[in-house]
Design a protein around this nucleic acid. Structure first.
Ligand SMILES: [Zn+2]
Ligand SMILES: [Zn+2]
Length: 179
DNA sequence: TCAAACGTCGTC
DNA sequence: GACGACGTTTGA
């Protein structure tokens, strides 16, 4: 069992900046053809067009799906993969639809190979060019969050007179994994 | 303003 | 290395 990061009272508040509603099962979108857009983007990126937005920090710039690979051509989410099941918190495209290009690392995408094998940025799909100030801050927060999580867990368990294992069973029960 | 999903980190 | 979480970017 991974991390019980599941928010007890999940994002039911739409007041936030942007919280995806619970529309995992009801796509309802049939008149959408983003592929054309992506292809145009490709052209733009290739330098054929110059009406794109000004190049921001390469650090924050994102790659886009190629729109031509098999996963890209897939229209619907499988609804069964981890990303589909966790879209609310995971915020990732369906695994079956993940563009082959985006699966590669940025460096690879940009056709670069100058990198040290000891650098953390050496990670795969989710570890291309990163580790900057923003990331450092994020790490800090992550640390805090984790400590808090642990603390809360301890408090809760203490209050209930539970062991770690008992807590796990309890959670499983709540989730309907047992019974 | 919102939905979608990329990038990145920590944990398992 | 897979997975989960989340900030952030991006296009509509
Ligand atoms: Zn899926
Ligand atoms: Zn693709």
């Amino acid at each position: 069992m991974p991390k019980p990061r599941a928010p007890l009272g999940f994002p039911a508040s739409r007041g936030g900046p942007q919280l995806p509603s619970d529309s995992e099962d009801s796509p309802g979108m049939a008149s959408l053809s983003p592929l054309s857009g992506y292809i145009q983007n490709e052209h733009r990126q290739a330098g054929l067009f110059s009406l794109g937005p000004p190049p921001e920090d390469p650090q924050k710039r994102r790659r886009k799906k190629c729109g031509a690979c098999v996963p890209c051509l897939r229209k619907e989410n499988c609804g069964a993969c981890g990303n589909c099941l966790n879209r609310r918190t995971g915020k990732q495209i369906c695994r079956m639809r993940k563009c082959d290009q985006l699966k590669k690392r940025k460096e690879d995408w940009e056709q670069r190979a100058s990198k040290h094998p000891e650098r953390r940025e050496d990670r795969g799909p989710g570890g291309g060019v990163g580790a900057s100030d923003t990331d450092g801050k994020r790490r800090e927060r992550e640390r805090e969050r984790e400590r808090e999580r642990e603390r809360e867990k301890g408090i809760t368990m203490a209050a209930m007179g539970m062991t770690t294992r008992d807590a796990g069973v309890e959670i499983a029960l709540v989730n309907g994994e047992i019974g």
